[in-house]
Amino acid sequence: MHPLDKIANQKWFAPASAILLLLGWLWIGMTAALPGATTTGKIPAPQAGFLAPEFSLPASQGGAVSLADFRGHPVIINIWASWCGPCRAEMPALQKIYEQFADQGLVILAVNATAQDTETAALAFARDLGLTFPILLDRDGVVSRLYENRALPSTFFVGADGVITEVIIGGPMAVALLFTRVQSLLERPQ
């Protein structure tokens, strides 16, 4: 018989188990999360539960757009390139969702990874698809670095409080996925 199997037959097994459970319960109380210990929303980082890192980029329509301008609105940040197949495939879904929810305050910031793309190709693609949300040009790759972008497309769902609720790496995202995520962003308490 394996030594582990002999343990449960010992007289001390039941009292030892009870003591272990009591100690476990005390451990739960002792290690309860202090306020702020697990709420990471104050630190900027490209991860769910953290504050979306701030950026400001030139928009294709002219002028500069800052993420901070949209505090109080749910925001989808989509990092893309015109040569990336999944990025191209999911753009119509993003446009459809934008048309459906823009009047409820949804903001979509399509950050073109211009450092890995050409501005002409990106703008032609946006024009062909009739995209109406802002196309931001990340010419120096600042946002790609800030958001630790390793694959295209990468999508960050940001609540009205500025906290990232979910990160989706890769694509294409389905309309239903975007629909449910936007709904939960809109229902999220500020």
Binding site: I168, V175, A176, L177, F179, T180, Q183
Partner: peptide, 20 residues
Amino acid sequence: RFAEGFMASPASVFSLNPGL
């Protein structure tokens, strides 16, 4: 649970997104 989202896009039923 989220029928409304799929009514807008029935093709999403067969999407490969694990988020669904």
